[in-house]
């Protein structure tokens, strides 16, 4: 339908790619420099005296900067969070889409309303709640409160509304109960939506910065964003160490991303249309 891409097009595409890649490369290059070289003016493009000191600093030093541990914490929190969201949101979304009961419209409208309350309103009170539940500095604080967000329920409800009713009716005739219908028929048909919600919840949790920064404090319990923030504070101008920390944080994500990028991108793409 369209002309073949012009040279200009390719220049643009490659320039944009460089724009993404060069800062990342610079991060990696800096991480093997010495402190002095990292502050050279003008900067050296190729490390003159490469050393692994910075990586040693972020990967060993007796539990002070366990970057890999932080990555693991982030991964665990985001995974559990996504799982919890998918379970509770699909159940609630199904009830709201396919069942009739008293106060249904009221409940749905009420949930929907909270979609428009910005998260920072809950910051102080939820923090105190975490304190009272004894959840401060634990994985629970990262996994559970966020799952109360309205987006998942809304998103799943919209999807379930679009599933043809006949599917359920056939099963009903076979005498299946609601739970069986939900798990055997509805959920398998909702795989794309479930995948999308998983990806979005995972990403949101993975990228969350403010909440973990304040509810976590033990070095070995931090998530990547919170840990890296402390790392920057603790090493101020030791840029090789800071860049090594950022590199160690970035590499596993990027590797994971290479394998699942299709699902991630499809998930994000779908959030706009259906949401």
């Amino acid at each position: 339908m369209k002309r073949r891409p012009s040279a200009f097009f390719w220049v643009l595409v490659v320039l944009l790619t460089l724009l993404v890649i060069v800062p990342l490369l610079w991060m990696v290059v800096t991480s093997i420099k010495t402190v002095g070289e990292s502050q050279a003016d003008p900067p050296t493009l190729i490390p003159q005296d490469p050393s692994g000191r910075a990586f040693g600093e972020v990967l060993t030093t007796g539990g002070q900067n366990p970057v890999l541990r932080w990555a693991l914490n982030s991964f665990a929190a985001a995974t559990l969070h996504a799982a919890l969201v998918v379970v509770v949101a699909s159940m609630a979304g199904y009830a709201l889409a396919r069942m009739e009961f008293r106060f249904k419209n009221f409940i749905f409208s009420f949930i929907l309303l909270t979609l428009f309350i910005p998260g920072f309103v809950f910051l102080m009170p939820n923090y105190l709640l975490m304190d009272n539940l004894g959840w401060l500095d634990t994985l629970w604080a990262l996994v559970v409160p966020g799952a109360a967000g309205a987006f998942g329920v809304f998103f799943m409800r919209q999807f379930f509304l679009a599933i043809p009713k006949e599917l359920e009716e056939v099963a009903l005739i076979d005498g299946a109960n609601a739970w069986t219908i939900f798990t055997r028929i509805i959920l398998p048909n909702a795989k794309p939506a479930l995948a999308t919600l998983t990806v979005l919840s995972f990403l949101a949790n993975w990228n969350d910065f403010v909440w973990p920064l304040f509810v976590l404090f033990s070095p070995e319990r931090l998530t990547l964003p919170a840990g890296l923030s402390l790392l920057q504070g603790a090493y101020t101008t030791d840029y090789p160490v800071i860049m090594a920390g950022a590199t160690v944080a970035a590499v596993p994500v990027l590797i994971l991303y290479v394998f699942v990028q299709r699902y991630v991108i499809e998930g994000v793409a779908r959030s706009g249309i259906k949401g």
């Binding site: 944009l16 790619t17 800062p23 900067p43 919170a226 990027l254």
Partner: peptide
């Protein structure tokens, strides 16, 4: 290319913040 352009998002604000703090440094930033 689509995957490349999306990639910065998955890195999260912390990695990006640390990286650009250095890149943007007045004296020795690239």
């Amino acid at each position: 290319f689509r995957a490349v352009y999306f990639a910065p998002y998955v890195l999260g604000v912390a990695v990006i913040g640390l990286m650009f703090r250095y890149i943007l440094d007045t004296t020795f930033g690239i």
